[in-house]
Design a protein around this nucleic acid. Structure first.
Lengths: 161, 161
DNA sequence: CGCGTCTTTCACAAATTTGTGAAGTTACCG
DNA sequence: CGGTAACTTCACAAATTTGTGAAAGACGCG
């Protein structure tokens, strides 16, 4: 066993389950949420599949599924330990919140749907106008979020070096 | 039947189902998503329970459940038509995106969980530091989002009067 | 090149979620 | 004050999702 479990397994587990529960409420599937929280609470920010299975008391299959999900939405990356078929999963400690908050791909699809709606309903109809304004909002947000992340990085660099 | 169905029911329905599908993918339960999309695509921005049930081909019970959900997360408001037991549901056309994007309550709970995690794991441990920085991020975001909404309103007022 | 370990895939059982019909409640209207 | 239209609650059936064990697949190592 590596340092992964941390000094006080009880404390780690308490945090992992509690934080995961919040993510679940926000719409994240349960296993991915637990895996993600476990990674976040690990000292190195990385854990192997076996460590995750042991710590969370779930089957390797469940780890596999959760990890695939998290990688797909770019919340973690998978790296192969050289000289082993062991895989290491890592939180993108500097980027993961962007994935959680901006969700660019999803917004893009919203925009596409709205845009089509404007065309279908007619840009001059009251409903069409409402949709157009909504679309406008998302386009605005999308640009502004980029700036916000910029500001965050500046703030963080100043504070944490 | 009021103007609720719009000029081309086919077009309205196509948009409603398509947009709702995108919301569902983002984690919104199906019925609330459909009801919300229908309201968004209505000319007045309001529909009655009966209109929703008819247009979406769902039972009054389903409308009731969806509407309760949407009201709880402040995506719609319910108003009583004076002199009728009919209820009218309305999209908060100026505010609904804030509810969708900032999700303040959820972030608050994330912050609480993170804060507790920092305490439990120790602010000086590597994991504790990671959690602390994450918490910091959310606090930053929370403040900045307020500013972003401000900028949106200014932009919108200029453009739409 | 084949052994052993780690990971993924697959089919299924369990648990959860979803939407419905029907009964129950509320409150307008005569 | 009933009658009744409109909404809500409740219990349940259907559908979906979730996590598992078992088997198959990948791949480093000897």
């Amino acid at each position: 066993m590596t340092e992964a479990v941390g000094r006080d397994p009880e404390a780690v587990s308490a945090f992992v389950e509690h934080f995961a529960a919040q993510l679940v409420e926000a719409g994240v599937p349960r296993m991915p949420a637990r895996v993600f929280a476990a990674l976040l609470a690990s000292d190195t920010g990385t854990l192997t599949s076996a460590e995750l299975a042991g710590q969370l008391r779930i089957s390797p299959a469940a780890v596999s599924g959760a990890v695939r999900y998290l990688a797909q939405v770019h919340l973690i990356s998978r790296e192969r330990e050289p000289g082993s078929r062991r895989e290491r999963y890592r939180v993108h400690s500097d980027q993961w919140y962007e994935a959680l908050t901006s969700r660019e791909a999803i917004i893009k699809r919203w925009e596409a749907a709205l845009s089509e709606g404007v065309a279908r309903l007619g840009p001059e109809s009251p409903a069409g106008r409402r949709l157009a304004e909504t679309l406008d909002f998302f386009e605005f947000i999308e640009k502004d979020v980029a700036g916000m992340m910029e500001r965050w990085r500046a703030y963080r660099d100043r504070k944490y070096g």
